Simulated scan of single mutants.
Amino acid sequence: MNIKQANLNDVLDVARLALVLWPHHSMHAMALKISETIQENKGAYFLALDKNETIGFAQVNLRHDYVEGTHSSPVGYLEGIFVVENYRQQGGAKQLLAACEKWAREQGCEELASDCELSSEESLNFHRCVGFEEANRIICFTKPLKGESY
Rank of each mutant, 00 (worst) to 15 (best):
K33E: 13
D115L: 02
G69F: 09
A18G: 05
T37M: 10
L32F: 06
N136K: 14
Y87W: 14
R16Y: 05
G80T: 02
L78S: 06
L78Y: 03
Y87L: 11
M1F: 08
G92R: 00
L8F: 00
Q89Y: 06
E68Q: 14
E117L: 13
Q90F: 04
G92T: 03
V67W: 08
V83N: 01
A18I: 01
D65I: 06
E68M: 07
E111Q: 14
V83C: 02
A99V: 12
A18M: 05
V60Q: 03
Q107L: 04
R128T: 12
A44V: 04
S149L: 13
C109N: 08
V14I: 15
A44D: 05
F57S: 08
Q39G: 00
K51Y: 10
N86V: 12
L78V: 09
Q59D: 07
V14Y: 10
V60W: 01
D13C: 09
L145A: 13
H28R: 11
Y45S: 05
I34P: 02
G108N: 04
R63G: 01
I3N: 06
A99K: 10
A135V: 02
N7C: 09
K33T: 12
A104S: 14
E134K: 13
L47M: 14
E133S: 15
V11N: 00
F46P: 08
N52Q: 15
